[in-house]
Amino acid sequence: MKRSIVCRCEDISEEDVIQAIEEGYTDIEELRKKLRIGMGPCQGRVCIQIVARILEKKTGRKVANIPLPTVRPPLIPVSLGTLASEKDEK
């Protein structure tokens, strides 16, 4: 079967998302926790808007009304060594 991938980082397809919505997970945060979408290295920049679109289509709610997930810092990956040295210099 052909799968259309929605979240590349976590290998989640449109079918996976639709199935979860049909099971009653109708909140982006909820889908995130259920399927791990948005938890990969890109932190959802690739997939969250697509998921929001699917959710809009399935539930009939406008995207603007669908709460987008909380942004979790850091915005770009940073190494533990770099973070640790920040502290040493103080």
Binding site: M39, Q43, P74, P77, V78, S79, G81, L83, E86
Partner: peptide, 30 residues
């Protein structure tokens, strides 16, 4: 709100416990 203080303190202690993790990237913080 998450704080930068936490990231510094965590990274500092974690790399003291396991120095090889220095090169590993931190991805999320909540």
């Amino acid at each position: 709100m998450p704080t930068f203080r936490f990231l510094e303190h965590m990274a500092h202690t974690l790399t003291r416990y396991a120095p090889v993790l220095k090169h590993v990237n931190l991805l999320r913080h909540w």
